[in-house]
Structure formats: structure tokens, C-alpha cells
């Protein structure tokens, strides 16, 4: 006890450590992997939105991707690595952050931290679970194996019908829409955060950056959710007897 306050000398100055293990280093990895995931999502969304162009366009797009199988697998492996790092660091950082305040305040308060920023771990974990389901649902067609047998008139896998059939189920649509809300909420903090972590921030432009972040996050939500909503509202319908 007596030595707690008398700072004994010489001070054990911590050795500058590996980037991967420093707090800022981990954050940078979070930022970069997060941004890659975001970039991938933008591509994914643009691809998906082709559903509004009709069955032919979407199925053709799907077939093109299929022909690029080797590239797709590389991308998939990279994205798997990226998402693993993002999730792993996300969880370890969160655990460390919790450990940094072993005794909580009796009276908690928040001045300006957004709810989005405080729920990143939950929206993130929610998204992670969703991604697992999503892959099983549409990519690997495990949950609904009947989708595998859908083919259009040209004999292509009928992705268009698969999507519509999927979203005609209210429950599935709601899961997707909720997940996309999580995504957008996650992004609403993530985008400004990305710039801040990599060192691009000025007080004068901060509000603008935040606004752009919110806008992009909202657009992502609208883009992704427009599909189940369109299906549910009957805007996008199954092709007449097309299977």
C-alpha cells in the first residue's frame, strides 16, 4: 500500500510494441477491415438492385459471377479473412474496454455519444449472425434447398425467382429488414469513425463527415431493404409461370 503513490523509479516505460497489439493498431485494423466490408457491401447492393431490371438481367448477372468462380472464391476467402479479423478484434477490443472499467458508475449518463456508437458490438454481432443465416439461405441454399431447383427459360439458375420466393415469406423479410437496419446503424457510426481512426478529421469538417456518414448509411438501408419491401408490396413479382 505504501508504495502505491510513491512512483518508484526508474519508471518501467513500456517498450513500443507491435502495431497489431497496440490499441491504435487494432483500431486501424478495425477501420480498414470495416471499410473493405463496406466496399464489398456497396458492390453487393448494386448487384442486388438489378432485380428491379427484371429476371433476365439479374439471372445473367448471377451467371456471370458463376463463370468467375475462381475470382469469386478468392474474394470470398479474402472477405472471410476480413470479416474474421473485424469480428475477432471487435470482440477482443470490447472485452478489453469492459475490463478497463471494472467498477461501473451507479448513475450512468451520456452527454453526446450516439446510441449507434454505444451499440456497435450488438449491431455488429447481430449482423454477424445474420450473415451466417444469409449465406445459408441464399448463397449455399441450405435452409431452403428447393431454391436450387429453380431455373429460368434459358436454363440458368433462377436467382430472380429465388429472391422473390424468399421474401414473400414475411418472417424472412422482416429478418432481412431488421438486419439491414442494424447494418445501417452500424455504418452510421462506422463511416465517420473510419476517417477519425485513420487520422482524417478536423473540427470544422466533422459535422459534414458525420452527415455524409448518416446519408450513406441510410442509402445502404434503403437500397438493401427496397428489395424485400418491393416483393412484399407486390412491386416485384414472380415471372408468369417462369419455372
Amino acid at each position: 500500500m505504501s508504495s502505491t503513490q510513491v512512483s518508484s523509479t526508474p519508471v518501467q516505460v513500456a517498450a513500443p510494441s507491435n502495431t497489431l497489439t497496440t490499441s491504435i493498431g487494432r483500431k486501424v485494423f478495425m477501420a480498414i477491415t470495416g471499410f473493405l466490408l463496406f466496399g464489398w457491401l456497396v458492390g453487393h447492393m448494386i448487384g442486388n438492385l438489378q432485380i428491379f431490371l427484371g429476371q433476365d438481367k439479374l439471372n445473367a448477372y448471377a451467371l456471370t459471377l458463376k463463370h468467375l468462380a475462381s475470382v469469386i472464391w478468392i474474394v470470398r476467402i479474402v472477405m472471410l479473412a476480413v470479416i474474421s479479423i473485424h469480428v475477432f478484434y471487435g470482440i477482443t477490443l470490447w472485452l478489453r474496454n469492459r475490463a478497463s472499467r471494472p467498477v461501473k458508475y451507479v448513475k450512468e449518463a451520456t452527454v453526446q455519444a450516439t446510441l449507434a456508437s454505444r451499440t456497435m458490438i450488438w449491431t455488429g454481432l447481430g449482423l454477424f449472425l445474420f450473415i451466417v443465416y444469409h449465406l445459408l439461405h441464399y448463397t449455399f441454399i441450405v435452409t431452403n434447398p428447393q431454391y436450387a431447383d429453380l431455373h429460368d427459360s434459358l436454363g440458368r439458375h433462377d436467382v430472380y425467382s429465388m429472391v422473390i420466393l424468399g421474401f414473400q415469406n414475411y418472417l424472412i423479410s422482416i429478418v432481412y429488414i431488421v438486419a439491414m437496419f442494424c447494418l445501417s446503424y452500424h455504418l452510421s457510426h462506422a463511416l465517420a469513425s473510419f476517417l477519425q481512426t485513420l487520422g482524417w478529421n478536423k473540427t470544422e469538417v466533422q459535422p459534414l463527415i458525420k452527415k455524409i456518414g448518416y446519408t450513406v448509411a441510410t442509402l445502404m438501408f434503403l437500397g438493401f431493404s427496397s428489395i424485400p419491401i418491393a416483393v412484399l408490396l407486390g412491386i416485384v413479382t414472380l415471372p408468369g409461370g417462369g419455372h
Binding site: S23, K27, R101, T110, Q112, S117, M120, T197
Partner: peptide, 8 residues
Amino acid sequence: GNCTNYDE
């Protein structure tokens, strides 16, 4: 802890 940009 680490910074998660709460700005608090």
C-alpha cells in the same frame, strides 16, 4: 481502454 470514437 480503446477509443471507439464516442466523442464523450
